[in-house]
Every structure is written in C-alpha cells, then in structure tokens.
Design a binder for these strands. Sequence first.
RNA 1: GGAGAGGUGACCGAGCUGGCUGAAGGUGUGCGCCUGCUAAGCGUAUGUAGGUGAAAGCUUACCGAGGGUUCGAAUCCCUCCCUCUCCGCCA
Length: 419
Amino acid sequence: MIDLKYIRANPELIRKAIKNKNEKADLDALLKADEERRSLQYKFDNLKAQQNTVSQVIASKKRAKESAADEIAEMGEVAAEIKSIQTDLSKSNTLVEALLLAIPNIPQADVPIGRDESLNEVIRHEGELPQHDFPLKDHLDIATINSLLDLPRGAKISGSGFPIYTGFGAKLERALINFMLEYHIQKHGYTELMVPLAVNRKTMTGTGQLPKLEEDMYHIDEDDLFLIPTAEVPVTNIYADEVLQYKDLPQKFVAYTPCFRREAGSYGKDTRGLQRLHQFNKVEMVRFVLPEDSEAALCEMLQDAEDILKAFGLHYRVLSLCTGDLSFASQKTYDLEVWAPGSQKYLEVSSVSNFGEFQARRANIRYKDAEGKLRHLHTLNGSGVATPRLMIALLETCQQADGSLKLPDVLRPWLELKI
RNA sequence: GGAGAGGUGACCGAGCUGGCUGAAGGUGUGCGCCUGCUAAGCGUAUGUAGGUGAAAGCUUACCGAGGGUUCGAAUCCCUCCCUCUCCGCCA
C-alpha cells in the first residue's frame, strides 16, 4: 500500500496513477474518511488523556483511604462518551484501511503510459527465429502425436484447464521444472523454498491479490484459505510482520509450485491446448532488497529469466508493460514473450516486477538500516519461468517434419536419468 | 477431534488477590567513565505506531487477536487464533 501521509501530501499524483492504471479506487472517499478519522482520533485522545489524569487522582485518593465518589461520577460520563467515540473511531479506521488497500501502486516514471496491452513497449528481440522447411504443426498436434497430454481426461476429472501430462510429457514437464530450479539455484544463487499452496486471507492481502482479485482465486470456504495463483504470494509473505537486518539483505528465493487461477472473465480466449490453464506449474523468483538496490535487482532478475529461454535456444521478445497493463501492486514490469512458430504468436512466459515498498508496507516487512532506523524494504519477483507456454514454444520450435521432437541438449541429462 | 499448559519489549523472564507497570530483573546493544593487554567493573541510554508541533516536546494506543465488565485491565469474563504435551484419527 501507499503511505497515507504521502497520499495526503500528493493527492494529484495518486489520482493520475489510478487513472493511468485503469483502477477505480476512490481517492476522494479515502481523503474524506482519513480526515474524519483524524478528527475522531483527536477527540478520543483528549478524552482519554482526561480519563487517565483523573484515574490517577482516584487511585491516589483510594490509597489514602479518601472518598473519590465525585471523580468516579464525573468519569462515568466521560467513559460513556469515550465508548461512543471509540465505536465511531474503529469504524472509521476500518473504512480508511479498506479504501487504502484499494489504492494501487504508483507506476515508475519510466513506465510507458497507455491504456492497455497494445501500448506495451517492445524493448528488444532475442534469440534466432527458428527456421523450418516443412509445414508446422501446433503444440497440441505435436502433443497428440507423441502422447504427451491427455486433456479430455483432465477435463473429465476436474474440468477444462486442468491438464494431465502423460508418460514422456510428464517427464518433460518435470525436467523443465528441475532444470529451471537448479539453474537459478546454481547459476544465479537463489535459495530454494517449498511452500504452502493454500494461504490465508492476510497473506493474500500482503502481496496485493486481495481485495481486488478475490474472484480470480480458488477459495476453500471451510478454512477461509486460497489456493495460490503464484508462488510470489507465500514466498514474499515469509517475512510478513518481521524486521530484518540491513546486513541480511538482499535475499533471493526460488520456488517451484503449481499455480491455480480461475481465469474468471477470460473464457474462450486463447484456450487451445496449454495456452490458458486453471492449474499450471511455475518456477518463481522472489527478492527482498534494500530500496536503493531494487532497480538494479529488477534488471538482474530479468536476465535470470532470460537465461532460461536462452538455454533452450528459444526466440523471444522483451516488453516493458505500459501503465494500463501493469498489475495492481507493480511499479514496473517486464514481460518475456516466447515465440511459438506453430501458432505464429508470442506467448507470455514470464513477468518480472518491482513492487518497491508497496508489498512490504502491506505485509509489514521492514529492515533496520545502518542507523538503526526501521524502514520498509523493497520486494521483487519474476517467473523463471511458467511451464505451459514454455512447453508450447519448445514443442513447436523443436518439431521435425514427422512430428517427432528434437529437444535441446541441455535437457538431456534431465530426461535420461538412470536409477 | 478430545484433555491439559502456555502466548509479555531484540531475547530471556517477573507481574496476572485490577490503579503508583510501557511494563521489575537479567541478557544483548549504544554512549560515557574506569582499568597499562583479554576479561571484568561503574554510570547512563535503548520499543512500535498514530495525532499535534519548525523543533524540543506533549499526547494516545499497543503485554497473541477481537469483544465485554469497570471510573480505571497485561491483570477479571467471553470468543477466536497460534505454540507445546498427552490421547484419538490418518498420509
């Protein structure tokens, strides 16, 4: 969340950010509620101060075995007034909190302004465009020829969007996950975490999925738990309500998890094969850094994600998301889109974002700086990368005329493990 | 799921027959002093958040969370959460 003092001091800046991000947070309501809250707080403080003072008097009289009946009678009225103001105050606090949680992060100055993804800025292309001298199949045809997937049965047991990987398909999926994990661990210095896949409401609020995206998530009513839409949520929240030492920063974590998304509102869009799923696998990187280091960390993490695509020899492009396509919590995001030659389109496989102190404020993650002052650290995360579209690009890029596959050599050790 | 025990400041740990406790004592840490080394000793300081103020300061809240009783609650009552031990059930 944004510092309320900052919002008070820079309302127009916030208003612009909300507009550029196509959010519908009610800034005016927030400012008004904040003012009301402060005025109630002022009244409350004064009455409390009076009560505290007189309580001292009552206490000392009682100790001296004197009567304090007058004071107690007088305080009866004050107590009633305090109680009533306290009710209003706590309502007011709840309201301010709710409105504040709906204010999105402010895009960084170098983020292109635009209303939707069509205005994202293509920064560069990387990797060779694959050359094939035969008609290309798309990933679903290739998967069928090689018996890699069983989507109908996945749909039968769960619903569409819940894939079954079969035989070599399952092994390949597992190989991709393990390769990426080890790559980030060994070459990029991340520490691996295995984390809960169901998290509570507070955790979902900490990273910014709640309150906005409740409809997009699977919810377990019985325990009020949500299935994670990304490992970002549990990993970033590991330090919620904690204070780290500045010497302990930066910290870099990588986690593989399945991700669950209801994809409400996107039915019928890009649904063929593995393009859009309710459950998919992803290797996610998360960093906790000093505020002054977050911009450099963002570039580094982008490289970390790109290294995976390069290792597979895939063609891809790097986008800087425009304000309208930026997520609620992000202040700057790069997307990686990999080329799927059979489908003839670029597919998003990674999103690398700097959240500044936005998430750290929500989740209350702080660090003690060299002077011993408490400050909010900065958080970042990036997919490194999501498997389904990576699989699409690999299958379509590595296909041969007969539909068989010639996969990158780097995957060999992972596919030929012997026991 | 059942029965007990417990959740206090960076940490350990008192208080829990309501008022003098933002919280003893200890450890740790900062600063100063003392001591010809290491160690020890002495003094002093050391929470977070909100409001107000140029600042010093003043003030409010916070002893797991939320309610309640009371003029007044870390202390009494209720609900919930979490941890530990034992039992049950089950990967």
